[in-house]
Each structure stands twice: as structure tokens, then as C-alpha cells.
Design a protein around this nucleic acid. Structure first.
Lengths: 249, 249
DNA sequence: CTCTACTGCGTAAGTTATACGCAGTAGAGG
DNA sequence: CCTCTACTGCGTATAACTTACGCAGTAGAG
């Protein structure tokens, strides 16, 4: 578990990258990192993230709890690898004729799809800079989309952060709202308008005139498709990036 | 703890709004929600969010653990109220001559300042729609900034979500990086370039050409001010919003 | 055939959140 | 003034959780 490979990365992440290949001497491993992560993902998928405990994951594998710690130094590492598995392989690279906007848009939609497929992944906090394999692959893909924009490399990184952060935010928002609707046991429509009533009850029109006007405008009378909300923000974002790109050409 | 006031809100949040004023009959309360939240915030501030346990907060108040549950139904509610306390009162309302862009920018900077003052608040997951008092006040302020944009009310909400999400994302990113730098024990400079080395070591140029070019461009040779990164994204965002606003006038 | 690096795991310790219900208190109603 | 009662603070107990430590057994190396 030591043997410095010089990356300064946790051993589990090095293993995920395929480094740490050892001339296997001892008993044949029955477990491996991939299976552990896969099992953990399955538990999250079927029973929710809250059910993901080390013992539950071990049980899923027919192993003992402590066996997992041979492959993962702490639960957090497992969680991080679960997220990486959830996002999986990025979408296809942009074709030679695909403009940066179309490519980045496709990239964002793919990320949204992954996030919606695995809502639990949004509950696991990881930001920092990309280090896990799929994370890095997504970053690579996005950089490729921006290749002909004339932006500085640092700017590209900022743009990617902007877009990926947005996708995560909206995904989290969607998941929260859907969970709240499910919990309320009513229709999305009814839930939304009850939120509107709540707001009027709690926010006095004297102190919160803009909110009163907001509610009065009937925003809560029709629940629209979450995708429309996503599209709106994404277009604003791309417009903003576009303005910069144009100024550079 | 029941007595339906009709909002459907957790009792603790109603209390935070100043509803739930009861003709106080029994023994004089020595505790109250405000003091509990304040104590919890203090613990988070001085010992980190990880140290915030119900018993630790109770100890801070010289009370017993279970006493807190008179005021808060679950730990999550306390955490949510801590976040609300951390953001506090929004900045001053926009003056009559302040354009939407200047106002929203000031709003975003104020939010960033609050987030940087209380980095632990970024670790507490809450999204969903605004319901807590300060949360709603921030929303009101942002709506006010957008009053003369000609946007539909629903669009204003989307714009606000876009900006506030961005501020949180960048704040989280900053906090993560600063923590990693502190943990590494080296200078920001050295940390950053070691990340660059990590990337080259792990990301083979054949499979990750864009990333190789990215690193080769020297992005990791100088650590620039986090505020510059923040400004860059914020300007893109505001440019994107601006494009929409212009199209509506 | 021995050596040894390595695997899986049993035990146990230390934290947590929180359900339940009791004893005491202070204002309300007579 | 006296009783009633809603309400406060809290003690006890439970059921989970992560994880440190070290042992017993295994399979390739020499």
C-alpha cells in the first residue's frame, strides 16, 4: 500500500488508472477495486446512497467488511470512485466539422444524461481538479471541443468549469425537486403551486415586493419540463462564451 | 411541535421565520433556535464542519444533547439553518440608477464574500427552492436587480439560479484547492506545478493530446489570484444574460 | 522445499444520531 | 391562593457506522 509511484495520489486512484500493477505473488485476489466500486454503485442505484456502507457493499460481494480496506484507504475514496464510474466514458469526440458550440452543447447534454441516470452521484461532494480517469477523459473531450476557439488554455479550463458546474447544479436542483414531489405524494403541478402558496404566506409583500410580484405573475401555475430550464441556462452560458470567442477571432 | 400553521414547512424553519410565537406558558426556555444555530456555527467556524455533532453543539451551550431536539427535528435542519445564518443578510438593494449588470455583479460578489468567510457552508448540501429567511431575502434582492430587464419572471429565476450556482461552484473549488495546498505543506506555486506533473504522468499524450497540450502551455507555472478566475466566469455569465436582455428591449 | 509478500477477515473500539418518556416549572383559570 | 396543564430540559438506551490492528492462510520465487 506504500511504494511511491511519485504521483502523490491515493493508492486507490492509482489503481483505477492501471498503475500499481504488481507481480502477484500471494494468494489470488478474489476482490479487486473495479468489482468493489461496481458493487457500491449497484447498492446506491437500488437502495440509495444512504444505504452505501462499507458493510453493505462487502455483503453485496459476499466478502467481509474489512476486506474492502485492502483496496480503499477510506470510504471517501470509494465514494469518489463511484462518482467517476457513474459519469463513465465521455461522449464521442467532436467531428472535424462540429463547431465548438455544438460540441460543447453535446458534451453538456451527455453529462446531464449521466447525472440524471445516477442522481446519487450528485450528492457526493467532489470538486477540486480532475484526477480520476473518467474525470480526466471528460476534461480532455471538452478541451478538444474548444480547440478552434482561439482561447488561451487557462480560459478553456475556466469555460469547462463553468459548464460542468452548471450541469451539476441544475441536475442537483432537478433531483431535489423531484424528490420533494415524490415525498409530497401529489402531482408536480400541485406541489409547485403549494410552494407558491408557501412563499406568499411567508414572504410579506411589504418586505418582499419583488417576490410577491414574482408569485403573482403565475410562475407556479404550470410546471414545465426540467429540460427547458436546463436549455435556458445552457444557452445563456454558451452565448456568454460565444461573445468572448468572437472577440478573439 | 405539531399545530399546523399551513405552510408544510419543518417547524424549525417556521420558527426561523418568526412564526410559531407561542403564548409561553411552561418554564422559561433557556435555549432557543437562534442560540443553537449560532453555537453550531461557532463550532464549524473554529473546529470545522466535521466537529459539528449534536453533542458538541449542546456542549457549546452547556446543555444536554437531547435538548436540541426540542428545537430541531433532525440534524439536517440544523445544518440548513447554519447555512442560512452563514449567508446572512443580502447586500444593499440596488440604487435607482444602478443597472442590472452592476447590481447583479455586486450581489454575486457579496455572495462570494459570504461563502469565503464561511467555507464550511459550501460543504452542506442544500439546493431545492429557497425557503429559509435569508435565502429568500437574497432571492428578493436579485429579483430587484433584474427589475428593468424585460425578462419574464421565470427567466429571472433561471438567471438567478445560474449566477448563484456559479458562485457556489467557484467557492467550493477555491476552498478545495486551498485545503489541498494547506495539506501539501508547500507553496501554492509548488502545489500547482506538482498537479501539472501529476497530469502528465497519468495522462498519456497519445490518448490525451488536448490535455498534454494544455499542460505544455504552462498553465500550471503560475498560480493566479482566485478572484481572477471568479471574474472571468462571472463576466461570461453576465455577457450571456446581457445578450438575452438586449434581445428583449 | 522454504521463504515471503500478500490476501481476506475477526475482533473490538470509538463515534454518531435519535426514540422515548419522566420530572420539574410557570402561567392560566377558577 | 390553588390546581391544572402545556411545556422545558434531559437521562437512558439503541442501533448504526467507520476503521485500527493483527493473525492465519496462500501461492509464486528462489
Amino acid at each position: 500500500m506504500d511504494e511511491d509511484t511519485g504521483t502523490g495520489l491515493p493508492a486507490s486512484i492509482e489503481a483505477a488508472w492501471g498503475l500499481r500493477e504488481r507481480p502477484h505473488k500471494g494468494p489470488k485476489p478474489t476482490l479487486n477495486l473495479g468489482r468493489i466500486v461496481q458493487a457500491a454503485v449497484q447498492v446506491a442505484e437500488t437502495e440509495g446512497l444512504g444505504a452505501v456502507s462499507m458493510s453493505r457493499v462487502a455483503a453485496e460481494l459476499g466478502a467481509a467488511t474489512m476486506s474492502l480496506y485492502r483496496y480503499v484507504a477510506a470510504k471517501d475514496e470509494l465514494l469518489a470512485l463511484m462518482v467517476d464510474a457513474a459519469y463513465g466514458t465521455p461522449p464521442a469526440a467532436p467531428g472535424p466539422d462540429e463547431g465548438w458550440r455544438a460540441g460543447l452543447s453535446r458534451w453538456a447534454w451527455a453529462m446531464r444524461a449521466a447525472a440524471r441516470r445516477h442522481p446519487w452521484a450528485l450528492r457526493i461532494p467532489i470538486s477540486g481538479l480532475p484526477v480520476r480517469p473518467h474525470e480526466v477523459a471528460w476534461f480532455e473531450e471538452a478541451l478538444t471541443c474548444l480547440r478552434d476557439t482561439g482561447l488561451a488554455e487557462a480560459e478553456k479550463a475556466s469555460v469547462i468549469l463553468l459548464v460542468s458546474g452548471y450541469v451539476r447544479n441544475v441536475g442537483t436542483q432537478d433531483a431535489d425537486i423531484e424528490a420533494a414531489i415524490r415525498a409530497s405524494g401529489t402531482t408536480p403541478q400541485e406541489w409547485l403551486s403549494s410552494y407558491g402558496r408557501l412563499l406568499t404566506k411567508v414572504a410579506d409583500p411589504q418586505r418582499f415586493p419583488a417576490i410577491s410580484k414574482f408569485v403573482a405573475a403565475g410562475v407556479f401555475e404550470t410546471a414545465d419540463d426540467p429540460d427547458d430550464e436546463f436549455i435556458f441556462g445552457l444557452e445563456r452560458l454558451l452565448d456568454g462564451i460565444d461573445a468572448l470567442v468572437r472577440s478573439r477571432i
